[in-house]
């Protein structure tokens, strides 16, 4: 499964299941939609670290990196190279 699909699945089933959405657009603003809030962010970070075997540094926990599925994919790819 692609990084994007994997993240989308996790967000839809774990973080935003209450919204009843079936899909998320790669560029949809997840912060604006309230999908990612402080309740969900920490869970999401643990999921990303475990699933993609990466380490997300505190300084990378900023809105730019979690704005949309695309920005999270970019973060994962960048961390995976390091």
């Amino acid at each position: 499964m692609s990084i994007l699909k994997n993240l989308e699945n996790y967000l839809l089933t774990e973080i935003a299941a209450g919204l009843g959405k079936k899909t998320l657009q790669p560029d949809e603003d997840l912060l604006e939609l309230g999908i990612i809030d402080s309740l969900g962010l920490m869970k999401l970070i643990s999921f990303m670290e475990e699933t993609f075997a990466i380490k997300i540094l505190d300084e990378d926990v900023i809105p730019d990196n979690f704005q949309s599925l695309n920005s999270m994919v970019k973060l994962v790819e960048l961390q995976a190279q390091n």
């Binding site: 402080s38 962010l41 505190d58 900023i62 809105p63």
Partner: peptide, 8 residues
Amino acid sequence: MLSTFPVK
């Protein structure tokens, strides 16, 4: 939104 991101 800022309270979600500790560094910010």
